[in-house]
């Protein structure tokens, strides 16, 4: 099983950002327990990191690993879309069989 390297770009302590962090943690715990690593980056403190990753929106979740790199924007409240974005759906189905 591959491990997930995730980066979440947020803005300070905004409500949207807090919600995104909570949503992401919940999804990872339920579907990727022990397989993930999350780095939370505040774009107001580290704009240069947003620059090099070419981030426009916050919150933005970047799936760094496994390849391909994918960006998911929004507060991650739509769980199904997040799973599709992370390619976890297939993973979960595979596990069920």
């Amino acid at each position: 099983m591959k491990s997930f390297k995730l980066r979440l770009f947020v803005t300070g302590m905004s409500v949207q950002s807090q919600r995104a962090i909570a949503n992401l943690t919940r999804i990872c715990e339920s579907d990727l327990a022990g397989l993930y690593e999350i780095e939370v980056i505040d774009v107001l403190e580290h704009p240069e990191q947003a620059e090099s990753a070419k981030i426009l929106a916050t919150p933005t979740l970047v799936k760094q690993l496994p390849e391909p790199v994918r960006k998911i924007i929004g507060d991650l409240s739509d769980r199904d879309k997040v799973l599709v974005g992370l390619d976890i759906e297939r993973l979960a189905e595979g596990r069920l069989q």
């Binding site: 949207q16 107001l44 933005t60 998911i72 924007i73 929004g74 409240s77 739509d78 997040v82």
Partner: peptide, 12 residues
Amino acid sequence: TVATGPYDLSAL
């Protein structure tokens, strides 16, 4: 880009 909820362009 996949949108999974509200967002803004604060990063930009």
